[in-house]
Design a protein around this nucleic acid. Sequence first.
RNA 1: CGGGGUGUGGCGCAGUUGGCUAGCGCGCCACGUUCGGGACGUGGAGGCCGUGUGUUCGAGUCACAUCACCCCGACCA
Length: 490
Amino acid sequence: MAKEVTSRSENFSLWYNNLVIKAGLAENSAVRGCMVIKPYGYAIWENMQSALDKMFKDTGHVNAYFPLFIPKSFMAKEAEHVEGFAKECAVVTHYRLRNTLDGSGVEVDPDAKLEEELIVRPTSETIIWNTYKNWIHSYRDLPLLCNQWANVVRWEMRTRLFLRTAEFLWQEGHTAHSTREEAIEETTRMLEVYADFAKNWLAIPVISGVKTASERFAGAEDTYCIEAMMQDGKALQAGTSHFLGQNFAKAFDVKFANKDGELDYVWATSWGVSTRMIGALIMAHSDDNGLILPPKIAPLQAVIIPIFKGDEELQQMKTHCESLKNRLKNSGITVKIDDRDNLRSGFKFAEYELQGVPVRLAIGPRDLQNGTVEVARRDNLTKETVPMENIEQFVLSLLSDIQDSIYRKALNFREKNTCNVDSYDEFKEKIENGGFIMAHWDGTAETEALIKEETKATIRCIPFDGDKTPGKCMVTGKQSDRRVVFARSY
RNA sequence: CGGGGUGUGGCGCAGUUGGCUAGCGCGCCACGUUCGGGACGUGGAGGCCGUGUGUUCGAGUCACAUCACCCCGACCA
């Protein structure tokens, strides 16, 4: 604890891992590629959950839960889907252990072999569509708008805390619609929800757009995404929304009777964000002093630290801290008092900075005399002494100011590190500095693959907004409708 | 899955050409002095040296195997 976080300039990955661990968000678990999310990290996730959940409900969705295990045969029903996930599935083959004969431990009981293996869900499209088949008969059953909060498992070759763990927590929305247009509208709507959440809660600016065919979700007709820029200039896909067409409806035979009494396959979407968002939050905002959390997502928005000498002063301060705490609490601010008497205030200051608590209030004898409190903000590390009267209003507006300024800083960073490039030579040079490059591309998978091969940059998305002037592909010189976003990514 | 690196009290590390009782810093516990930006003193607790097999009179140290983690690739809603 309380040690310097490795400087970002040395190695962003190390800096990030270090920060995750030092700030007490998570740690590696005993299971390969999995992590333990510690209480402080989980509190961030809970805040994300409640904000998102409300947004989902405001857009007409309901929560449900489907099984963790998927019969192997389900996975095979949608050809592209199975191809996309086959390489990273955990498989359950047996349902019982027994003691070894020599008593040295336990072994898998060969008599307890499952007739059909079960896949631990890497995503739930298959089991959900198998269920939806029974839920949907008529156009009156549509749209069906369900979301599930769950864990999923993907046996990734390489893992990183929060960004790519073997098991992770997420939400996955799965909807069914009677028309293509309505499903596409839903796909767009949910991507907008994600973009809104990223911007207004996480203070992370994102680019919304559509993935190229090669980056598309396995089984989707189109994948929409939000892409964020991390402080090392790399891109991070922060959320996706898929238009699944009728692929899963056909694979699982989900038909409905329309108003004219004709049978038709339903149209589907799925969309999800995961605990990777926590990774994005860390890498987008934090500095070498530790986390910087936007107030709207911070588990603790303000901390009160009494400054005292000896027991007597501590008791005196406590009373005042309590009253301050109650005033802030009554204004809807999440706040606690840190009255630990075995640590000096300087240590506590550093510790809360490491954890990214947005506002720190300190009250000492001096403040008592003057009727003031020292208020420090985490984002820019400034502090000032303010009068106690109207402290609620002061902190409230400070929190909102911090939220805005974190966003502006991230946006500013992204803009500084985004540029238009027209020649491939310039592209190769610029991509080395990281950041987003807006360039023309001829729309072919070949060119995309070539660029990836030669520069490790991928097309993050074809953005919905922004410059739509046509031009010439930087590689082939062929016609291009508009610039797309290139970057190296996580 | 390839290349490189690391596994030694909770954390970070040292440990020589194999050698006797495995150390250091931080943290932890007790007491005291401190306390407005990461305090200090004194005393104390805490180790199957990742795991297994071997070589040896003797292994933290050597060999082989294995597992885990980290970094770089490949892969990746």
